[in-house]
Amino acid sequence: MSYTPIKRPKFSLADRIYIVAIAKGLCRTFKHLVLALTRRSRHREDFNSKGIGLCMPFPEQRWDERLPEYYRGAPTLVRGEDSRERCVSCQLCEFICPARAITVTPGEVDPASPCAKQEKAPKEFTIDMFRCIYCGMCEEVCPEQAIFMSQEYLITLTDRDKGIRDKETLYKLGGVRKGLVNKWNDHK
């Protein structure tokens, strides 16, 4: 036999007229209501919540320390430990970006500078935060480990111009990352 028929339970009359079940359900929800109002909800301590029920009232209480490691916030550019601009302006992130939020204008690196070996660096690099959908594809596609999703989730602007982030802002937000990319060292 290719299938097994499910055995349906036989409901008694008491089950079929619902009333007991409805009363039980109403008691359960009322219990939640009372516990929420008296601030004794279950698992409240785990959340360390200060509001009604299990809620953390947002601007007063933040959940930053609970952000998972893989949280994808705003994308940022990073520098290497030698404060080298990691981005070589290959524009892969620009091409992959499904929302077309990224614009890269490639530029040349000054031959005299210590990281002249990489030859290219972005002249301008803007991310339009009004378009960004936080998908993280730019981070994934980047062959130089130059663009990372930060954990910044609170992007509230009072000015439209601040929504378009330029290179300086992105580097400031990204900071410095260690390790990983060594191929542009002079010794290699």
Binding site: F30, H32, L33, A36, I52, G53, C55
Partner: peptide
Amino acid sequence: RIAGWIQDRPGPN
């Protein structure tokens, strides 16, 4: 509000 309380959240407060 009551929907909130029943679901362990404050509702529009």
